[in-house]
C-alpha cells in the first residue's frame, strides 16, 4: 500500500516534469512565430503606411533606385503561378492518390510510394536545376520555333509562367498525393460495402461514395498545396525569369517571364539599402497575409468537416 503510494508520487513528479518540458517546447514554437511576425511587421509596416498601402499593393512599377515600390506585378505573378500549378497538380495528385489506395496492385504501390516520398525530399534547388535544363529548354524550343511569330521577343526565352507552373505542380504533388491518400484510406470500408451491396460498380462506389467521403481531407491537401506553391522560392526563381512586369493579357501570357513575391525578396535582399530593405519586408507582410488567409480557410474547412 505504502509502496504503491510512493510509486504514484514518483510517477506524478515525472509526469509533471515531462509536462513542463512539453509546455516549454510548445511555447517556443509560439514564441518564434511571434518573433517572426513582430520583426516582419516592425520592419515592413511603417514603410508600407508611410509609402501608402494602396500605392504599394497596386503600384505596377518596382524601381528601388528611384524609390518606387509597387508590388502588384509580383502579386499577380505569385497568384497566377499558384492557381495554375494547383489546376495542374491537384487533379493529377488526387487521381494518383485514388489509384494508389483503391486500384493499384500492391507491387505498384510498393514502388510508387517511396518514389513520392523521395520526390518530396528533393531539395528545391535541384528541382530548379531540372527545370532550367529540361523544362526551359522544351518551352524555349516551342517559343522560338512554331510560336515565334506570335510571341514578343521577351517571351521566347523559355523562362516563363509556364515553366513556373510546371515546376510548382511537380513540387506540390507529393503533398497532395500523400494527404489525399491518407484521407481516402481513412474512409470506413462499411461505406464501400454498403454501396457495392446495392449493386453499384467499383467505379461508382469510388466516385460517389469513397471520394466524397474523403473530400474534406482532399480539400485540405489541395489547400496545403496552395500554401506550398505560394511560398516556394528557390526553384521558382530559377525558372520564371523574374522580370517585374504584368504579363500581357491573352494566351501569350503563358510564356511571359514574371516575378513572384518570394522571388522579389530573395533576389534583392542581398544588396538592399535601408528603405529598399523595408520595402522587401513589406513584401513579406503581403506574403504573410496570403498564408494566413490560406490557413484560415483550412481551419474553417476542418471545423465544418467535423
Amino acid at each position: 500500500m505504502k509502496f504503491q503510494k510512493e510509486r504514484n508520487n514518483k510517477n506524478n513528479i515525472e509526469e509533471a516534469i515531462v509536462k513542463v518540458i512539453l509546455f516549454i517546447m510548445a511555447l517556443s514554437s509560439i514564441i518564434s512565430l511571434g518573433l517572426i511576425t513582430f520583426f516582419v511587421f516592425n520592419e515592413g509596416l511603417p514603410f508600407m503606411i508611410g509609402y501608402g498601402i494602396t500605392d504599394f499593393i497596386f503600384g505596377t512599377t518596382w524601381n528601388p533606385t528611384e524609390q518606387v515600390y509597387g508590388i502588384f506585378p509580383m502579386i499577380v505573378g505569385s497568384v497566377i503561378v499558384t492557381i495554375f500549378a494547383i489546376l495542374v497538380g491537384a487533379p493529377i495528385g488526387i487521381a494518383v492518390a485514388v489509384y494508389l489506395v483503391e486500384i493499384a496492385p500492391p507491387r505498384v504501390t510498393k514502388i510508387v510510394k517511396p518514389a513520392i516520398l523521395l520526390l518530396e525530399g528533393i531539395p528545391s534547388v535541384v528541382i530548379g536545376l531540372f527545370g532550367m535544363v529540361v523544362i526551359i529548354d522544351v518551352i524555349r524550343r516551342l517559343a522560338r520555333g512554331p510560336l515565334a511569330d506570335y510571341l514578343p521577343a521577351g517571351y521566347q526565352t523559355g523562362y516563363s509562367i509556364l515553366a513556373g507552373v510546371l515546376i510548382l505542380a511537380i513540387m506540390i504533388l507529393p503533398t497532395i498525393i500523400s494527404i489525399s491518400a491518407d484521407s481516402i484510406r481513412a474512409v470506413p470500408k462499411e461505406y464501400k460495402e454498403a454501396s457495392l451491396a446495392m449493386g453499384s460498380t467499383k467505379w461508382q462506389t469510388l466516385f460517389k461514395v469513397v471520394v466524397p467521403a474523403a473530400k474534406s481531407g482532399i480539400l485540405a491537401a489541395v489547400i496545403l498545396g496552395v500554401g506550398r506553391a505560394i511560398g516556394e522560392t528557390m526553384a521558382i526563381i530559377m525558372v520564371i525569369g523574374n522580370s517585374v512586369q504584368l504579363p500581357i493579357p491573352g494566351w501569350e501570357a503563358v510564356f511571359a517571364p514574371v516575378r513572384t513575391l518570394t522571388g522579389n525578396i530573395a533576389l534583392e535582399m542581398g544588396y538592399a539599402g535601408p528603405e529598399h530593405r523595408q520595402a522587401l519586408f513589406a513584401t513579406g507582410i503581403i506574403l504573410f497575409l496570403f498564408i494566413i488567409i490560406i490557413n484560415s480557410i483550412t481551419l474553417l474547412l476542418r471545423r465544418r468537416g467535423t
Partner: peptide, 16 residues
Amino acid sequence: LRTQVGMVFQKANPFP
C-alpha cells in the same frame, strides 16, 4: 444480382 438481393448489415452503415 445485388440490385435484386439487398443487404442490411450488423452495424448501421449510412453514408455520410
